[in-house]
Design a protein around this nucleic acid. Structure first.
Lengths: 179, 179
DNA sequence: GTCTTTACAAAATCGAGCCTTGTGTAAAGC
DNA sequence: GCTTTACACAAGGCTCGATTTTGTAAAGAC
């Protein structure tokens, strides 16, 4: 990825978080990145593609960070905990990430969510299943997929409709998984 | 509940499912129920109250039916299965019920969903927790709440973003709970 | 007494026309 | 490879009546 692409994605992400996809203007993306509007078109073709690229980028960054947290500790349980803490703090901190994963603010963020719900779900579940494979041999192979999907579904559910604060959500998901 | 109230709720529910809350007209509710528009106002005061009453009614009907299924068999596992089958067939059959529980079609159904997510969650979890208490003594008391909430969250998650068809969702939720 | 009919004010919605803004494309220049 | 300028065109607002719908009120019918 070129520096230009990177700065355009960052600029677009910031504006997207502030004004929604409806209120996003290509001129503003260009100005914020210090380039001309035409350059944005050379790079992404059109607005829809740009918005989708931001969503893709956010997803990748977020899942990479989750993967890091999962692998951050020797003890797999500790890794799981670190990952869950990250998921909830980050999703509450960054409204754009939250929108991508939960479909919140469907009003402003429609293009981020449309039909990608299932895609996001399986991508996230794959990350988690891979962690189970390498760090959690107790989980039998034939249950790995289900456990991973359940973890992701529960996490997303707690993002969408929280029962309590972020730490409470971490506890709830973790305990549910360890049943 | 009077017969009048009942038929007004049914008429409103049908029209709501067909045209959304935005396209719902009080005259049509009246006509469909065979009464005058004024009678609708005498009964519900205004449109917003009527729509909320329909949502409340749908919730009650649905949870009562779930409760029946849970208690339908001697074997608690069989009851759980029957309830899950009902949840998924019914939610896919009746778009209005699905909207109430998942917030789908937020466009047309806004008043049904607004801020009621948590309320619906706890109401449903309570129904399930009560089933655990009476039919499933294996679950220790201090885990009952968590198990119930997890069951509901997973079910709603599968309604919102299905991995497969309805039977597959039933299997996924059931197996996740029995882990 | 409960529901209907009729009447009416206030608010929301709609459609047409117009103007402004933003998108997307193209070409010439640095 | 990026900028500047220019332009066609579609989308979004805005205004202004006309219409529809909401919500209230009163008088009458079963």
């Amino acid at each position: 990825m070129t520096d230009l692409t990177r700065s355009l994605l960052d600029a677009a992400a910031a504006l997207l978080a502030a004004h929604g996809s409806r209120g996003l203007r290509m001129v503003d993306v260009a100005t914020r990145a210090g380039v001309s509007r035409q350059t944005v078109y050379n790079e992404f073709g059109n607005k829809e593609t740009l918005v989708r690229a931001v969503a893709l980028d956010k997803t990748d960054q977020f899942l990479a960070a989750v993967r890091d947290r999962l692998a951050s500790a020797e003890d797999p349980l500790e890794g799981l905990h670190a990952a869950m803490v990250f998921v909830f703090t980050e999703a509450f901190r960054d409204p754009l990430t939250k929108s991508v994963f939960t479909g919140a603010n469907a009003e402003d963020m429609l293009p981020l969510v449309t039909t990608r719900g299932h895609e996001i779900l399986t991508a996230s579940a794959t990350v988690f299943a891979s962690h189970l494979t390498t760090h959690w041999p107790d989980v039998p192979e034939d249950r790995r997929g289900l456990v991973a999907e359940t973890a992701v579904r529960l996490a997303i559910s707690h993002l969408l409709t929280p029962s309590g604060d972020a730490p409470a959500a971490v506890v709830a998901v973790t305990r549910a998984l360890l049943a």
